[in-house]
Amino acid sequence: MLICQRSGTMKHLMKWEFPGGKSESKEDCLQREVKEELGMIITIDRALNPVEH
C-alpha cells in the first residue's frame, strides 16, 4: 500500500494520505498512483503476501 505525507505547503498540511477514493481495482489504483506521483508506467506481476501490524 502506498502512503505519503502531504507537504507543509499543501492543503491539509503534513497529513497522511492513501491512494484510492475512486471506484477501481487495487491494481488500477496502484498503477494510477505510481503514474501520478512518480511519472512511471508499471506492470503488476503478482501481489505480495499481506503483512499486518
Results as ranks from 00 to 15, higher is better:
21 G>V: 06
18 F>I: 12
42 I>K: 13
38 L>F: 09
30 L>I: 14
28 D>G: 09
4 C>E: 01
8 G>Y: 08
50 P>R: 00
8 G>Q: 13
2 L>Y: 10
42 I>F: 05
21 G>E: 02
44 I>K: 02
52 E>K: 14
15 K>F: 01
44 I>V: 13
4 C>N: 10
43 T>P: 01
22 K>C: 14
53 H>C: 06
15 K>P: 06
38 L>W: 06
44 I>P: 03
27 E>P: 00
2 L>N: 07
41 I>D: 10
26 K>V: 12
52 E>F: 15
31 Q>R: 10
36 E>D: 04
47 A>T: 12
10 M>E: 03
49 N>R: 14
21 G>S: 02
53 H>M: 13
25 S>Q: 01
20 G>C: 05
23 S>W: 15
27 E>V: 05
14 M>V: 11
37 E>V: 15
36 E>G: 10
9 T>W: 11
17 E>M: 11
50 P>M: 08
52 E>L: 10
29 C>K: 02
7 S>L: 11
38 L>Q: 02
11 K>A: 11
52 E>S: 15
35 K>P: 08
10 M>P: 00
46 R>C: 12
34 V>I: 13
33 E>V: 07
30 L>E: 07
5 Q>E: 08
51 V>I: 06
29 C>G: 01
24 E>Q: 12
20 G>F: 00
8 G>D: 09
13 L>K: 15
15 K>A: 05
